[in-house]
Structure formats: C-alpha cells, structure tokens
Write a protein that binds this DNA or RNA. Structure first.
Length: 719
DNA sequence: ATTGAGAGCCAC
DNA sequence: AAACGTGGCTCTCAAT
C-alpha cells in the first residue's frame, strides 16, 4: 500500500476543511430528509443496540464527529442510520485522522531532527559523532523478520549534540536518498567501535539487521527494553511507545495505526514523515534511558547486574541465534511418514470404537469416551484423568498412544522442516533473555520453541559436516540453589560430599537404608518428584498427579520431607513472610527482584495465594537463570577465543534453562572439553555449593555420546 | 479468512 | 490447613 499524502496544499488546508464540513452537513441534511429521523433519535436507538456496547469507543468517536458536524452519513445513504453504517463511518473517520496526523507530523518536525540524504550531510553527521561518547541507534526495515527483511534506513541520535538523524536508503520515493551500501560503509566504524557507547530499544533486532549488512555492532551500553524488565517484570507492554507514553508522558502513535499493519517502512514515500517518525524513536529512547538509569541507580546491585550481565548477553544471544539449526530433512520425512501411518492406523481403530468423532476435540471426545468405557470423566486430560484408566480400558490406552503420536507429529516432526529458512537452509528461533518473569529465557516467535523440543524431535537437529554439538547440563541446578539458599545441613553435606541427592532424600523420607534407594528404585524416582514439588512450590495435588498416588499419601510424603528437612521448611516460610511484608523477593545476590504485589493485598484477608509458592519458586528459578546467563557470556568468550586460535569456528548453539550447547569443530581435543567444563562449573557458584555438569557430544541433539566414547571412537577412526 | 480463548501438552 | 513454578505451539470452536 502506498501512502497517499498531499502536503502541497498547506495554504488551502483551511479551505479544504471548511469545504469538508459543508459537504458533510449537506450529506447529513440530505440523508435526514430521506428518512426524517433526527440525529439524536438515531443515536439514541443505536446506543441501545448490542453493537454499540461491543464497540463503544469507536461508536462514541463517530457520534462525536457527527454531532460536531465533521462527519455526515455515507455517500448515497438511504433509509435509517444503522449501527453497521456507524462502524463503516468509523473506518472512514480513522483514515481521515490518520492522514491528518501524518500531515501534522511532516509539518512539525523539530529543528534538531535531520533528514540526511546527501554525502555532505552524512559527513557532517559523522563529524558530530566523532565527538560523541554515546549514541542511540535504530534501524528501520521492510518488516520485523530478521532473517527475511532488510534495512531501509538508519536512525542515529547524537546525544551530546542533541541531533536526531534519519538516513533513508531504500524508501520507495522520488526524493533523492543515499545508497545503503555507502551509508553502511560510512557508519560501520562507528557501529563497530566498542568505545562509542550505544543505546537502543530491543537492540538484538538491530544487531541482527546490521549483521545482515556485514556490521558487527559493538559497544552496547543500554537497552531500554531489557532495562524495563529489570525495573518491572510485570509491565503490561515492553514496546517503546507504550513505555514512553506511560513514563515520559510523551504521546506517540503506534506504527500500525500510522502506516498500516503490513506496511514496510520503505513504503513511506514522504521522507519528512519518515524522519518525524524514525528520529523520534531515537529521541525518546535516550529520554527513556535517562529515566531508567535514574531509577535503577537506587538499586546499585540491580544496575551492576544489568550492565555487566544482561547488556553483554544481548550480543551473546544474537550470536547464538545466528548460528541456526541444521534439520535432517531426509530423516524427518521418513520418521514423519512412520508416525503418520501409526496415527492413521490408530485413528481408524478408535473411530470404530468411539464413533465418527474428532479425536482432537475434548468436547466430542469426552462423551464418546464415557459411553465406550462407562466411566464418568472429569475431563479428557491425558495425564490426570486418562492415564490412571489406561490399564482398565484398552480404548484409553490406544487413545493415549494416538495423542502422543499426534502431538509429536503436528507440533514437531512435521512442523520443523516447514520452518527451515529457504535462504540459508537453516532453522532459526528467537530467544527472549527475559521472556519469563523470573528472568528465565523464553523461546519461540517464528513458530518454533527451542526449549520444549521432545527427545524424539531433538533427533532432527544435526551438527553440520565437520562439526559436533558439545552440551553441558548443570546437574540439579535448582536444587543446588535451594541448598544454598536454605543452608539445610543435610542438603549442603550431600553436595559437598558429592552424594546422590535423590537417594539421600528417599532414604530420609521413606526411612529406608540408602542401599534400597539407589538408581532405578521407585523410592529414588519418587524422591526426585518430591524434590521437584518442593522446588516448584507444589502441593499435594501436584504430587499426587505426578506420581499417581492419592492426595493423602502425597501429603504424607510432603510432611515427611519437611519434617526431615526442617531448615528447608523454615526457608520456605521465611520467603512467604518476606513477600507478605515487602511485595517482592530477591534473586541470589540482590541482582534482581520478582515483584509479587498481590502478596501484600492478600495477606490482609489471610487467604493462601499462589504468590506464596511463587515467592520460593521465583528465587530458585530466577537465581538459576542468573547462573545460566553469566555462564553464557563466558561461553561466548570461550567460543571467540577458540575461534581465534584458528582451529575452526566455535559457536554458541542453544540454551535450555540448565543446559548449554556449543557447536564445535569435530577436531576438538580433551583439553578443549576440559575448558568448556571449567566455564560451566566455575563461572558462577552458589556460595558453598559446588557445581557439577554432565557433558555429552551429539551428532544428533538428543542422542548423546559420552566424552569417553567420543574420543575412543575418534582414536579408532583416526588410526 | 482471521482472531481469541480455552484445553491440552511439550520442555525445564 | 491450605497450596502446584516458568514458558510457547497446535488444536478446536465460536465470533467476526
């Protein structure tokens, strides 16, 4: 869509507006004459309609415009004014407002917003940059997909000089503009200069886009989006405009509302409009940073953590995302066909038994299943409801089998190959370094979440030729964190002596000698779940579902645990007390908070609330996430160092909470593995609790090869 | 056709 | 005495 703008008629604008009003009045009069219903009456009728209630804000805008005479009825409108017509008029009104707004923007560009479209101006800008310590940068693009879209212009704010420049390079316009290659070449030394500080909002996006143009951005000092996640993880939106409106009281329209949802910025043909919009982002990003820095200064530990861990992590994560994933398409095809055949077979058999229903519809499935089994089902939840009935009814066993296969096929095996990028042949995902409110990563955005790939799907992820994946899994990361926080002597001793934690817990909780609680015993696996329940703040309901026992027994296990580990119990209670009093809890070394304001309110009426379990869980989960993040930055340094040694490229590959993977040349040595392990184990330690990590090689992710096995096989192949 | 809520289920 | 953490994707189903 091209934007229709007429900026030539500045002087005639008033006349135009007057003419518009006159025209509207005339049409309104014509229409009223046609059906003789006064506007007041028509609106009185519409306001009683359901449509009005559903679209009140829009309707009110139309109503106001009609009563003020700005807006009349539709062209050629006949008969009674209807709610449907009012809604159509809203669209017309919104479009008018939009065009008016764009005109205003173009006409009221501040003097310190520079449109740079010739070499002399760009040179002048670079001279200003030579004197700057810190700049804001932002790239405008054809869209929001970093793997597909391209840069169409650069925003640079020179903070000291208070100059906000927009350098368009690929706008579809008759206006002259500089060539992108020339601009990139000119700005590259500034973008890549680590001692010229850079601010941005969602810098990872711009880092990716610049990388596409061969620029390795360095010197990032502040990201206003990530900073906001430090200041308030409960913020409803982390987009620049809502934040600026909320905290700086600077109004700004959303991109979609100004330019349309699927409009690339290159389609903005009026460069004054482009300047007004783009340069403002640079301007407000700097203001937002100043605001955030002032507030974070009150929490020096958070500020220190933010600048030393979160900010460098942005570059680390961008590097990791750029690595991408090789997907074994052949294998996916074969394996997919196999699963599909199994799904079809099971489907046919199930339809025979249950009738012609949609097995994926819980609403249809529940009654059909009840009829076939004679059971009364609470839901069709596989884990909770169906699994316990699996042995009793073969149809349920079959259905569970079907569900497993269907999920595996539709979400993973069949879906992954579809998501491979045609340009590079790799699969990409987005990692959000503060996607979870606890500070954990989330992943997804392009249809693939790398953090919930089942083992069977991980087999599709292969190392490229000449490379192998090296993975490290922190052993019991969150429980070590729990031991550290609580300082429970039994837990601490367990980790200091390197004993089997689950066996120790089983022995305590079930009062059995440790010999009966070793690997593979039910006691041990149940102890594992109990520990999980404790760390996640789970109660008896969660535990009973997890191990398939009744609630009473689950409660007994929990009681036993807390009786045997009273220090853990005390620590959990302290967290609850703390959150009740303050409305938040701290992560490890006060690096960040988890704000749970409901805890303060709820305490007034004495009800137990989810925030109490969250208060313990957030501390454990959030502190573990800090360990992962600090270590990731070190792993990135290790990769850079190893790559610089010249024996092939090392790259960060993926992170899944307590698991970090790197892609390394298959010529990797035992000494290299030792260095990787050192980084995993020694970068971030929870006080007196040592870390441990399980290392494995993968040709296919999920099919582990032990370190010994790898090097022994190597020897035989080399010889 | 597109959108949003809810159910369900994958991971740690 | 109670009580169950953090995400994202696919599917259905109903509403535009």
């Amino acid at each position: 869509m091209q934007l229709r703008l007429n900026l030539a008629g500045e002087q005639t604008e008033n006349n135009e507006a007057e003419a518009k009003v006159a025209d509207a009045r005339k049409r309104q009069a014509d229409a009223q004459e046609a059906n003789a219903e006064p506007l007041e009456e028509a609106w009185g009728r519409i306001m009683r309609s359901k449509s009005y209630a559903n679209n009140q804000a829009k309707m009110d805008a139309v109503k106001q415009a009609m009563f003020s005479g700005e807006l009349g009825r539709e062209d050629g409108a006949k008969g009674k004014f209807s709610a449907a017509e009012a809604l159509r008029l809203y669209k017309y009104l919104a479009e008018q407002k939009r065009e008016e707004r764009l005109r205003d923007m173009a006409e009221s560009v501040p003097d310190n917003y520079w449109l740079v479209t010739d070499e002399a101006s760009l040179t002048e800008l670079t001279h200003i940059l030579d004197d700057e310590k810190e700049i804001v940068f932002d790239v405008e693009t054809t869209g929001v997909n970093v793997w597909r879209d391209r840069i169409v212009g650069h925003v640079i704010t020179a903070i000291q000089a208070d100059i906000h420049a927009y350098i368009p390079t690929k706008h579809k316009t008759d206006h002259p503009q500089l060539d992108n290659e020339y601009v990139v070449k000119t700005l590259k030394p500034y973008y890549e200069n680590p001692s010229l500080g850079k601010l941005a909002h969602n810098a990872k996006y711009d880092i990716h886009m610049l990388d596409r143009d061969g620029v390795d951005l360095r010197g990032l000092t502040w990201d206003t989006q990530e900073a906001m996640r430090m200041l308030n993880e409960n913020e409803p939106s982390f987009a620049l405009k809502p934040l600026v409106t909320k905290y700086l009281d600077i109004q700004s329209e959303k991109y979609d509302e100004l330019f349309g949802k699927n409009t690339g910025f290159d389609e903005v043909d009026d460069l004054q409009v482009a300047l007004a919009y783009a340069a403002k982002d640079g301007d407000v990003t700097r203001k937002l940073r100043d605001f955030q820095r002032e507030h974070l200064a009150r929490f020096p530990d958070i500020l220190e953590y933010y600048t030393s861990v979160e900010v460098p992590l942005i570059h680390t994560v961008a590097q990791m995302e750029m690595t991408g994933f090789d997907i074994d398409l052949e294998y996916a095809k074969e394996y997919g066909a196999e699963i599909k055949a199994e799904i079809d077979r099971l489907y046919a058999e199930l339809i025979d038994e249950l009738g012609d229903i949609n097995l994926n519809s819980p609403a249809q499935l529940k009654p059909a299943l009840e009829a076939a089994t004679g059971e009364t089902l609470e839901s069709t939840d596989a884990k909770k409801v169906l699994k316990p009935l699996k042995k009793k009814h073969s149809v349920i066993a079959k259905l569970l089998d079907y569900k497993d296969n269907f999920k595996l096929y539709s979400t993973y095996i069949n879906a992954l190959p579809e998501l491979v990028d045609e340009r590079t042949g790799k699969l990409y995902t987005n990692f959000n370094q503060n996607g979870a409110k606890t500070g954990r990563f989330s992943s997804g955005g392009s249809g693939v979440n790398l953090q919930n790939q089942p083992k069977k799907a991980r087999k599709l992820f292969t190392a490229p030729k000449g490379y192998v994946i090296l993975g490290g899994d922190w052993s019991q990361q969150e429980y070590r964190c729990l031991a550290y926080f609580s300082q429970d002597p039994k837990l601490v001793e367990n980790y200091e002596k390197g004993h089997d934690l689950y066996a120790s817990i089983a022995s305590e909780v079930f009062e059995k000698p440790i010999e009966e609680c070793g690997d593979g015993t039910t006691y041990r696996s149940q102890a594992k779940v109990i520990m999980l329940a404790v760390a996640y703040g789970g109660g008896p309901n969660m535990l009973k579902d997890a191990i398939g026992i009744d609630k009473k027994e689950a409660q007994k296990f929990l009681d036993n645990f807390f009786e045997r580990f009273p220090v853990v119990k005390q620590w959990v209670e302290e967290n609850q007390k703390y959150v009740k009093k303050h409305g938040y809890v701290w992560m490890d070394r006060n690096q960040r908070k988890r704000r749970l304001p409901d805890a303060k309110d709820r305490s007034a009426n004495g009800h137990y609330s989810a925030v109490f379990t969250q208060s313990t869980n957030a501390r454990v989960q959030g502190s573990a996430a800090i360990q992962t993040k600090v270590t990731m930055n070190e792993l990135q340094s290790l990769c850079d160092r190893k790559t610089a040694e010249g024996n092939g490229e090392w790259r960060l590959y993926c992170v899944v909470h307590d698991e970090a993977l790197v892609l390394v040349p298959e010529t990797i040595t035992r000494q290299d593995v030792k260095e990787f392990e050192d980084v995993m184990v020694n970068t971030y330690i929870f006080g007196n609790i040592p870390n441990a990590t399980d290392l494995e090689f993968y040709r296919r992710w999920g099919v582990g090869i032990s370190i010994e096995e790898w090097f022994n096989d190597k020897k035989t192949t080399v010889n």
